[in-house]
Nucleic acid binder design. Structure first.
Lengths: 150, 150
DNA sequence: CTATATTAGTTCGATATCGAACATTATGGA
DNA sequence: TCCATAATGTTCGATATCGAACTAATATAG
């Protein structure tokens, strides 16, 4: 108001501001539930491979995770060193590689999820679950639109 | 479902997943609207000082931005080098410093906001503004709760 | 079939961020 | 008053991420 910003701008910035803070807080919580040396982004990659299926090319995972290829190269190296994934050449494309989960990777994900949910047990009350449910469809709408028009 | 995760976990992770993607996409858009060498986090600091008033201690800004003190030290150095802020010792507390905006800092914020909103003009339709308005109160509820219980 | 353009992955240098340890200054209780 | 405790800001080393340039392999146009 007093800074002269118009109402549309304040609405849009206000929305993205709330989203940014919630993301930061939830990432911080997740980070504390992960083993030392495992970053939330590493968890996201493993989680994605469990949910969407493994045997994917790094460039596909990078696109899904919204990071650059070089970042993915680095993250996959970390996950491979930890034994959570394997990275093999793609027999069908000499340029490509295929990423596959190991049992240790799947176990890591299960453990991490249990740890996070245990943390949330004391924290997320029914009212908050209801709020999450209420906003989901709109968030998906906005996410899809931003994703398609970036 | 097929991965055996229970429905509460899927709800909670689904919510934070959408929030994370939206945050990433909006940050990427903001980043492209900023001058070279200015990070979205730098914009956030200046924006915060305009909205909440300047003359604050770095540790206060760090708390508001949800980053550590050392990160704030670094970011303030960047902003000072760019001439967007001044950092002076706090006369009332020998340990502290006070951060103040310069005219260049305020101008930078105005320009950045105009640039981002111009980008959003072609992108955010009335339906999306409505969606943002609908979710705001629930997002604020969740943000406050997470913030208080971290 | 060959030359060009595109794609996958990597490497390099730079920046943002973090945790831990540190020096300096305030504050509060004996 | 004086010492223990806390708070502010900084420094250091490590990691995540990015953009740009590079190599190798594939795809496409002529």
């Amino acid at each position: 108001m007093k800074d002269g910003t118009d109402s549309k701008t304040m609405e849009v910035f206000g929305f993205f501001n709330e989203v940014g803070i919630i993301n930061q807080l939830s990432s911080a919580i997740l980070a504390k539930c992960l083993p030392d040396g495992v970053h939330p982004s590493h968890f996201s990659i493993v989680n994605h491979l469990v949910r969407m299926g493994d045997g994917k090319a790094p460039v596909r995972i990078a696109a899904a995770m919204q990071v650059t290829k070089n970042t993915m190269t680095h993250s996959l190296k970390v996950l491979e060193d930890k034994g959570f994934i394997t990275v093999e050449p793609d027999p069908a494309d000499g340029r490509g590689k295929l990423v596959r989960l190991t049992d240790a990777g799947r176990t890591f994900r299960e453990t991490a999820i249990q740890s996070v949910m245990a943390r949330f047990e004391d924290m997320i009350e029914p009212a908050h679950r209801d709020a999450m449910k209420r906003v989901m469809s709109d968030l998906i709408l906005l996410r899809k639109h931003l994703d398609e028009n970036r």
